[in-house]
Amino acid sequence: MATPALPSNDLQTVRRDVASRKVRDQLFVVVGLLALFACLFSLLVLFSKLVMDGSDRFTWEFVSSFPSRRAAQAGILAAWVGSSLVMLVTACTAVPVGVMAAIYLEEYAPKNWFTGVIEINVTNLAGVPSIVYGLLALGLFVYKFDLGQSIVTAGLTLALLILPVVIVATRESLRSVPRAIREAAYGLGATRWEVTKDHVLPYSTGGILTGMILGLSRAIGETAPLITIGALAFIAFLPTPPLTDVAPYVSFTWLTDPFTVMPIQMFNWVSRPDPAFQSNAAAAGAILLGMTLLMNAVAIYIRYRFRKSINW
């Protein structure tokens, strides 16, 4: 049997071959752009629809009023204050715990089957439906620890929810610190902790902050777990202010106050029959989306800044 001949190398054949392969290359560009536009377009439509529907509600009154039975007077004051305070609790708990867990796993834990199992589980936890966290929190924080249907319960619940995101992002960030840098520090006589605190952590701050913000921007839109623990949908007062005018000037009673958050406020308005409330919901949705986009922008900026100052 004759072996098939190799394609000839003359100019004509080569050109024809390159041309036909480049057509396929161009084809992919078209398909790729189409896919990209499909998702950008739907996001754009969604956002502009929210903005248009809620256009008459983007006023200072809307931001500074409590909810009301009359749509035109209802506002998101309680909701955005609630969201901010819950995010504060979430950030203050998820970040230290997540970063410490990641440092342990990445820098200290021996590589054996046990840590392998933990690793796989941490990654999988990111995929647990959020309502399951709500159920866990209801049993644990509300009933067992008796924290009530409060800001601290909500903050801790969302902290649990984003913990895997924070851990995974932190670990990736720690891992990107080159071995050569660690060896340089160890070579000077540093202990594991000194290497971590003087080098590995500072050099991965950008990635850690990015992970934290991405986690928080997921948490800020969560509704299901907070409804599960019993967040109120109608609330006409603010939590106790954290700063007081008597010593010691800070107060933590706000932690145990009832609360509502932006997505629950939206959900409440959407479910009302009166169409005037729909534009409230749309306006609140646009503001929530804006907050999320802003957080992502901050994350991108931080990453950019750190990339610029530290490039391995």
Binding site: P178, A180, I181, E183, A185, G187, G189, H199, Y203
Partner: peptide, 16 residues
């Protein structure tokens, strides 16, 4: 040991 014996590596590895 490392406090008394220093090392210089193959690729320069200054801290950032």
């Amino acid at each position: 040991v490392r406090m008394r014996i220093g090392m210089v590596f193959q690729k320069p590895n200054p801290f950032p």
